[in-house]
Structure formats: C-alpha cells, structure tokens
Design a protein around this nucleic acid. Sequence first.
DNA 1: GTCAAGTATCTCAACGTTGAGAGATTCTGA
DNA 2: TCAGAATCTCTCAACGTTGAGATACTTGAC
Lengths: 175, 175
Amino acid sequence: MPQKPQQEAGDAVDVVAAQWRRERPDLGHLDAMALVGRISRANNLMQKGMKPVFAQYGLEFAEFDVLATLCRTGAPYELTAGGLLRSAMVTSGAITNRLDRLEKKGLIERVPHPGDRRAIKVRLTTEGYDLVNTVVEAHVENEARMLAGLTKTERAALDTGLRRLLVSLGDTDLG
Amino acid sequence: MPQKPQQEAGDAVDVVAAQWRRERPDLGHLDAMALVGRISRANNLMQKGMKPVFAQYGLEFAEFDVLATLCRTGAPYELTAGGLLRSAMVTSGAITNRLDRLEKKGLIERVPHPGDRRAIKVRLTTEGYDLVNTVVEAHVENEARMLAGLTKTERAALDTGLRRLLVSLGDTDLG
DNA sequence: GTCAAGTATCTCAACGTTGAGAGATTCTGA
DNA sequence: TCAGAATCTCTCAACGTTGAGATACTTGAC
C-alpha cells in the first residue's frame, strides 16, 4: 500500500536554512527567512518560465502587463496612466517608458482625458486588442503547465495561503 | 461564540480574476493565473519592504545577497563567482557588477583560485563579515514582522505549499 | 602531447526601473 | 475668489540586469 512519505522532499531554501543554522545558531526567525526566500525563488522561476511565451509575440512581460490590464477592464479598453502604474506596482517613469514603447508599436494610443487635462487615457488599439487576446491564451496555458506538478488540492491550499498573506499586507485592491 | 468567516477576504488578485472572468468567460486556467499573480505580488511587496532595511546600512538587496551567501557558507567565507551567480539566479554580468561594487566598498576581495586559474575565489573581508552579520539580524527581524499578520499555522502551511512547488519545478539545490 | 570541446570570468551595449524634480492642472478651505 | 496643497504625467540621470561575445584556462579523447 503506497504511503505518503513522512519526510517532505527538500528544496534549495532548505539548504540555505541549514547553512544559516550551522553558521549562526543564535539567529531567530529562520522560518520567516525561509518563507520569504521561497516566495522570491518561486517568483524568479515563474518569471523565467513566462518570458519565452511573450518573446514569441515580440513582447516583454512589462508590455504584456499593460496590454492585459487594459484588456481585462473591458470596453472601451481605457485606463489612465496612473491607474496602470498602480496596478503594475511600478513608478511613474516606468509607465511612461512602457507606454512609449507600446505606442511606437501601435498597440496602444494616448488620448486626452475628458474632464481632467492633467491626465491621459491609454487606449488599446485594434492591433493591441487582437494581440493581447491571443497572447493571454498561450500565457495561461503556460502558467497552468508550470503548476502542473502540484495537485489541484495543493494548488488550492497554496493559493489560499498566499491570499491571506496578501490581505494581511493590505494588498486588497488595485489602486 | 466567534465563528470563522465562511468567505475568505478578497485580495487584489481576486479583483483581477473577476475582471478576466467578465471579459473573457471562455478563458481557462484562471486559477493558475491567480496563483502566479499572487506569488508575483507577494514577492513585490516583500522586496519593497526589505529595501529600507538594507538602505540603512548602505546596501542594495543584490549586494546583501552576495554577502549573505558568502557568510552562510561558513569559514573561510569563500565561494567562486560561478557559485555565487548560480545561488543568486542571475547572469554572469550581474555577478561581475555586484563584485565590482562590493570590492570597491572593501566588503569582499577577489583572490586567485588555487588549482584553477580561470576561476576566482570571492572572500568576505573582515569589514564585510562584520557588516553582514549585523545586517542579517535586522533583516530577519524585518521579515518576521512582515509575516506577523499570519498565524504560525498559516505560515507553516504556506511554507509547505511553496516548498512543494519549488521541488516540482526542480529547484532542489543551489547550483 | 595535441587539439577540440567545455568552463570560468569579464566586457559592453541595450534595455528597463527608480526616484527626484518640473510643469501643468485641479481641489480645498478660508 | 484666491492661495496653497495635492495630483497627473513626463523628463532624465543613475543604477542594475541581460545576453552575446571575448579571453583565458582546463579537460578529455586520441
């Protein structure tokens, strides 16, 4: 009869934690350090795994992020630059840069904001709309593939834990 | 009698997922997309939370990462550049850059590798050793503080899920 | 021994982000 | 109504990473 292993398989962070325990046995909170380290490494691996999919369509992750944010807001696929930067968690300089590149590619256009002349509206062009709707399908397929090593139950448990973490950090909306 | 809420509190990713469901009801794997999004946002928030601690000591995260890697290997606190870049998950150019900066600050030194003249050994100086041992204490305290909104049980469950994910991605050692 | 293949590090240009600051516009309260 | 505070976007220099290529050295097969 198959038995669940008593001992979980170790990952790279277990190695790191063991090294710290040996070198600094007085150091507390190693569990916190390990958890943060796991989030960081998982993010790193996920990003590396996504990059080739976007590259297939001539996009960087940062560019896809903008297009996807506009797409999922629904028609008329418009958002201010400020809305985009808060959603993407980057600074204003980064958004200006991303919009410049996407505008040059003809995937978005900047239109005046009616009612606030400080602001602009960023709008998906037809080309941008078509592209992002294609890319997002390949993208989610790829994400699902990267997570396929976990059971549905494991994924759900992980998801719940991460949601609680985000809520506890105050990350409850996009603005 | 206090009751656990039936409904989990929502985070920013719940908002994103709801937008996609509305705009693209045909899109599958939204659970995978949400999980990846949560890892990304959690990482982003953690990084932002760590930055000020390192800044207090005149360090960037990337620099601390190198010093900490050397420190936790134990005496004589040496590693090759290749070992460092694999541990840090960055490219060779990035490591050269980090080592240049740390060398300029007097926190590490490059010494010839005995037995392989292609390689170098990167060694913590006394100044580097003292600094990293101080900073790491403030750093883990800070990490623990950022995670304090979760119960011990929640943190353990999250940690287990992330370890399984990393193992499933093949991230079982440092190089 | 010799040569091809592999490995270790560094170089360098392209790229993207940060963060401070400027300019323009809108909001707020007296 | 008006001045000061706040907000929105853009500019720009500093910084860090990537990724391809160069250089030097080592290894393995013959």
